Amino acid sequence: MLVNVSYNNKEITRKVDEQVGKPFTLKERWALNGIGSPKLIITETSVDLRNLLILDNNRNTCNVELRPKGIIVRFRSLLETFALVIPYYKLSLYKGEASIYSIYRDHYYIKVESDTKAVQKFFKKIIAYKADNAPTYIEDL
């Protein structure tokens, strides 16, 4: 689900919380050693996302937030903030050559580049958390 999260809209917040869960509490964030990624440089995207990113001339960057039932990929275009909401059961992560990570949900995808150890550690955290907390049966959804 791709949504504009620039403004405080209760309906959008409810839909996001329904798909990926409410944000972690401060105690849980501390236990997980943080839930946000460093700044990631976007190298390639699907058509829908690319149409948003080409509207301005800024460098295309994003960050990823870990949630109990999924992740949120946030990026800016013009003066708006957009979020790609991805529940774990629809999330596919791939690591390509030259430290390029691909994040997929249905027909949306974002390829990001970063060669720091912190990014590699964060993506390992996402995979581990997905393995521990993703629903195993359709009834769990």
Rank of each mutant, 00 (worst) to 15 (best):
L52R: 02
H107M: 13
K69H: 10
K69C: 05
L93R: 03
H107A: 10
N60S: 08
A118V: 12
E11D: 14
K125W: 07
D56R: 09
G34K: 02
F75A: 03
N8A: 08
K90A: 11
L26S: 11
P135N: 04
V47H: 14
L84Q: 01
D56C: 12
L49T: 05
V112P: 10
P23D: 00
Y129G: 00
R59C: 05
I110P: 00
P87T: 08
V73F: 09
P38K: 10
S99F: 14
V85Y: 07
N33S: 13
C62V: 01
N33P: 08
E44S: 04
V16C: 04
F123A: 05
K111L: 05
S6L: 06
G21Q: 01
L93A: 05
I35P: 01
R50A: 10
N51F: 13
P23Y: 06
I35S: 02
L26M: 12
F24R: 03
I138R: 15
N133C: 06
P135E: 09
E18T: 06
P38E: 12
Y108V: 07
S114M: 11
A134V: 13
V3Q: 00
K124L: 06
D106E: 14
D106H: 06
V16L: 09
Y88M: 14
A134K: 07
A118S: 10
P23C: 00
V16M: 09
I127M: 13
Y137S: 14
Y7R: 13
L84K: 03
R59A: 11
Y129I: 03
V16H: 00
K95I: 02
A118R: 11
A134G: 06
I12T: 03
